[in-house]
Amino acid sequence: MSFVPGATERVDIHLADRSYPILIGTGLLDDPASWAAVPTATSALIVTNTTVAPLYVETVRRAIGGRFRQVHVLELPDGEAYKTWETLNLVFDALLREGSDRKTVLFALGGGVVGDMTGFAAASYMRGVPFVQVPTTLLAQVDSSVGGKTAINHPLGKNMIGAFYQPQLVLCDLATLATLPARELSAGLAEVIKYGPIHDMAFYDWIEENIDALVAREPAALAHAVKRSCEIKALVVGQDEREAGLRAILNFGHTFGHAIESGLGYGQWLHGEAVGCGMVMAAHLSQRLGGVDAAFVARLTRLVERAGLPVVGPALGAERYLELMRIDKKSEGGDIRFVVIDRPGSAVMRGAPEAMVREVLAHCCAA
């Protein structure tokens, strides 16, 4: 385990036009040094939600106050169901009401929904203003806050409207994970687990050995999981910022998972719950395509279960699953494309015969 207790670790994302840091540690919100990479401006807007605001907004306001003449706060409703145009417009309303200019800095203080909407607002307002990711959930710290993918949902498809727009800084304060509900922690573990099959089986072995410690929130285990996850995502994003090829492997389990989220109605299953189940389904598809054996599928299924995640898909019906997956972002010309494991530790994106996908759905979903 490479994380030094009490230290602030730094992972850099190197892109074609610039780089930015991901800072990982405990107590970072309170430390003015944590915010050194943030540009100074006349004003800032902290975008958060009604759950996170009472816990951390005053800490962040105090920490960044010396860099801005005015710091405004916007509290959004909490939950995936609010990742919509209507909620996004609340951010634009606040920016316009306060007379925000092109140097105004937005701070996304919360989980993946807050991060996605704040980033999309930053990409769009005056055609681009700076923003900072301050993720307070495990899922956001290991995945959604890193790499610049921002979006809102549409009733017909998840994350179908958005932009690639990179933050100035990602600040992962591990202390915020102490207030995370157990269900949200498990949801974040799905995005940790995915990095093993797609890139690093040594990390996967480590996750298996430490899954009980992760569920119990042992600080050293969580710190290592966040750091290694960010390292892998930074490596992939640095090679393919706009998902022209390699970056698609980060969507392992997401084609099935997004269909679950859309089919049930956003918020019925958490994103990580749908991804965890989706990884099991994608593993079964990988087996049928010859990439992994039955032992690998069973091993992954056990780990997802131990993380507290569902492994049986809801009974949407094969036709509904296929309909939803055809409008997934990775589809081409109506053909569904999946991230599958071609060998443990390596993933590819490819199509699969519809009859094979139906077999997987029949095997993996409730009757």
Rank of each mutant, 00 (worst) to 15 (best):
residue 75 E to L: 11
residue 27 G to E: 02
residue 37 A to Y: 04
residue 28 L to G: 01
residue 28 L to C: 01
residue 51 T to N: 14
residue 51 T to F: 11
residue 41 A to H: 05
residue 37 A to I: 06
residue 28 L to S: 02
residue 64 I to N: 01
residue 31 D to M: 02
residue 60 V to D: 04
residue 39 P to K: 10
residue 31 D to G: 01
residue 58 E to S: 14
residue 60 V to T: 12
residue 55 L to T: 05
residue 39 P to H: 11
residue 38 V to T: 08
residue 32 P to E: 02
residue 68 F to R: 09
residue 36 A to V: 07
residue 75 E to N: 12
residue 74 L to G: 10
residue 73 V to T: 15
residue 70 Q to S: 13
residue 33 A to T: 09
residue 65 G to Y: 11
residue 62 R to H: 15
residue 40 T to C: 08
residue 62 R to K: 15
residue 46 I to C: 07
residue 30 D to W: 07
residue 43 S to H: 10
residue 67 R to L: 14
residue 63 A to D: 13
residue 75 E to W: 12
residue 73 V to F: 10
residue 43 S to E: 13
residue 42 T to S: 11
residue 40 T to Y: 01
residue 51 T to E: 03
residue 68 F to N: 08
residue 32 P to R: 03
residue 42 T to I: 06
residue 41 A to P: 00
residue 69 R to Q: 15
residue 70 Q to K: 12
residue 76 L to H: 09
residue 55 L to R: 14
residue 38 V to I: 05
residue 37 A to F: 08
residue 48 T to K: 09
residue 55 L to H: 05
residue 65 G to Q: 14
residue 32 P to Y: 00
residue 70 Q to N: 14
residue 37 A to N: 08
residue 52 V to E: 02
residue 33 A to W: 02
residue 37 A to L: 07
residue 77 P to D: 15
residue 54 P to Y: 00
residue 67 R to G: 10
residue 48 T to L: 07
residue 48 T to G: 06
residue 46 I to F: 09
residue 53 A to H: 07
residue 48 T to W: 03
residue 29 L to Y: 04
residue 34 S to D: 02
residue 46 I to Q: 11
residue 37 A to W: 08
residue 28 L to R: 04
residue 35 W to P: 02
residue 44 A to L: 06
residue 27 G to S: 08
residue 51 T to A: 11
residue 73 V to R: 12
residue 72 H to R: 11
residue 63 A to M: 14
residue 74 L to Q: 12
residue 78 D to G: 12
residue 73 V to D: 07
residue 49 N to F: 11
residue 53 A to C: 08
residue 54 P to Q: 03
residue 27 G to M: 04
residue 40 T to L: 02
residue 72 H to F: 15
residue 27 G to Q: 06
residue 76 L to R: 12
residue 47 V to E: 01
residue 73 V to E: 10
residue 71 V to Q: 02
residue 59 T to F: 11
residue 57 V to Y: 03
residue 59 T to V: 15
residue 51 T to D: 01
residue 72 H to V: 00
residue 29 L to E: 00
residue 49 N to H: 08
residue 66 G to D: 11
residue 44 A to K: 05
residue 36 A to N: 08
residue 30 D to Y: 05
residue 59 T to N: 10
residue 42 T to G: 14
residue 38 V to L: 01
residue 33 A to N: 14
residue 30 D to C: 01
residue 39 P to S: 07
residue 44 A to P: 06
residue 56 Y to A: 10
residue 69 R to H: 13
residue 77 P to N: 14
residue 66 G to K: 08
residue 70 Q to F: 13
residue 72 H to M: 00
residue 52 V to T: 13
residue 53 A to D: 08
residue 37 A to C: 07
residue 52 V to G: 06
residue 46 I to A: 12
